[in-house]
Amino acid sequence: MCPMSRETVLLDEVAIQKSLIRLAHEIHEANHARWGDVILVGMRARGDILAKRMADYLKRDAGVSVPLGALDITLYRDDVGTKAKLPKPTEIPGSVDGKIVVIVDDVLFTGRSIRAAMDALMDYGRPAAIRLAVLVDRGHRELPIRPDHVGKNIPTSPGSNIKVEVKEVDGRDRVVLEEAN
């Protein structure tokens, strides 16, 4: 942690699990009639892990399965210089033509990543619909984008940062608010 900022834990492991289970069931209910066409596509590097967990919860609780994809938007960003990452492959199961693609991300902030994600998806075909599910919506949109399913709304100041940690990458599950002192 940076010495000039303080951290507040907003969601712990149990709270994250509850949110994801609720999100998964919401997505299932909303797309119940066309479940065979639904694909969950998680955004790297945390959204793909959340999508996988949601698919596991649906399998366990409702006995339904859903194809999973992972989307890397590094090459679609509008800020190559400031947020450059090592690009990772995008994996889409089959074609997205006529499918209902549910984008899963950890935090929704300016909406620019989602814009890039939609551009990337369109390069894979013509989905019937694109939906958006996020664990945390922290506000401050810079583009006309809104989520269809939200785990938790957390109003924040623009200078703060929301960090989502997951066991698979960070060794623990928690959502943290980092604020400058």
């Binding site: 590094t74 090459l75 679609y76 090592l86 690009p87 492959p89 894979y124």
Partner: peptide, 23 residues
């Protein structure tokens, strides 16, 4: 190493239905 790792991911673009990214 960084160049080789980056190439590993970029190789994937040739397999996209649209073989192009806007970077």
């Amino acid at each position: 190493k960084l160049i080789l790792d980056t190439a590993d991911s970029l190789k994937d673009v040739a397999r996209h239905p649209i073989k192009k990214v806007p970077t």
